[in-house]
């Protein structure tokens, strides 16, 4: 199930800056344009923070580090680790090949636990994201959805996306795509009762020298629980050298990454 593909695609994709004609575009044209303008990032290392806000407005700030690599077959493998505070330090998630295999390292027990089956739907370490959300980084697979350009405003194209997966917890998603930069500005997720459930917003993007942009800060809100998780990246390195066996159970057991 690809619940938040667009969220994670957003994290790991940088899109080119280009003013495009707004006339007579279809949803496929827009997705084509987005794919065209992805920068060639095969590996990346990012440090940042994750702010978790509960229903009473209390905030917890966590330092995070992330690694990702696009494999030869187009799938993406990632490692996500909390660096602080002490209660979650070094809890590390490994996702191989778009979440085909997910492992969680729990330093307190020195154990690596396989996350599979319905366990993928559990939320990850108190955040608004499930294990599957954290792993669905392979990009938007159009064949998994029905989609249609339903509207546009001055700044965005508005595309409705209906998942074909009968087990999806969403009835539909409404995505706003920036008309100038062709990246996702916001996604609204509706539950099976057609109630707006979660909202993903891009809070900050950065324009690069080569004309691409990449996100700096996003926010995922759960409107039912009135909770929020804000992910902010402060250091991003792209196309770095990573050993062939870096994305492995062995690596996530290291004290430092």
């Amino acid at each position: 199930m690809k619940k938040l593909l667009l969220f994670v695609a957003l994290i790991f994709l940088a899109v080119g800056v280009c003013a495009a004609s707004a006339s007579a575009l279809t949803a496929d044209d827009i997705f084509d344009e987005m794919e065209e303008r992805q920068s060639e990032v095969t590996t990346s290392r990012s440090r940042g923070s994750l702010l978790v806000v509960d229903a009473r407005g209390r905030e917890e700030l966590r330092e995070v580090i992330m690694y990702s690599r696009e494999e030869d077959d187009g799938t993406v493998s990632t490692i996500f680790r909390f660096l602080s505070p002490a209660s979650v330090r070094n809890i590390t998630l490994l996702s191989l090949e778009d979440g085909d295999q997910i492992n969680l390292y729990m330093p307190a027990y020195r154990r690596v636990r396989r996350i599979a089956g319905s366990g993928r739907q559990e939320t990850f370490a108190g955040t608004n994201f499930t294990y599957e959300d954290m792993s669905d980084i392979g990009g938007f697979e159009r064949e998994d959805y029905e989609y249609e350009l339903i509207d546009e405003d001055e700044e965005n194209y508005i595309i409705e996306i209906v998942p074909l997966d009968p087990d999806s917890q969403y009835s539909r998603q409404v995505m706003k795509v920036d008309k100038n930069l062709f990246f996702v500005n916001q996604i609204d997720f509706y539950d099976l009762e057609e109630t707006l459930w979660r909202v993903l917003e891009v809070l900050e993007v950065e324009e690069m020298d080569d004309g691409t942009v990449r996100f700096r800060e996003i926010s995922m809100s759960d409107l039912k629980d009135n909770t929020r998780s804000d992910l902010k990246l402060e250091e991003i390195e792209e196309n770095i050298d990573l050993p062939a066996n870096f994305f492995s159970v062995r690596t996530i057991q290291r004290p430092e990454l």
């Binding site: 636990r113 396989r114 996350i115 599979a116 089956g117 319905s118 366990g119």
Partner: peptide
């Protein structure tokens, strides 16, 4: 062993 068995979708065996 730990993993997923197709015979019981959604369940994880350990």
């Amino acid at each position: 062993f730990q993993g997923e068995l197709r015979a019981l979708p959604g369940a994880t065996f350990r």
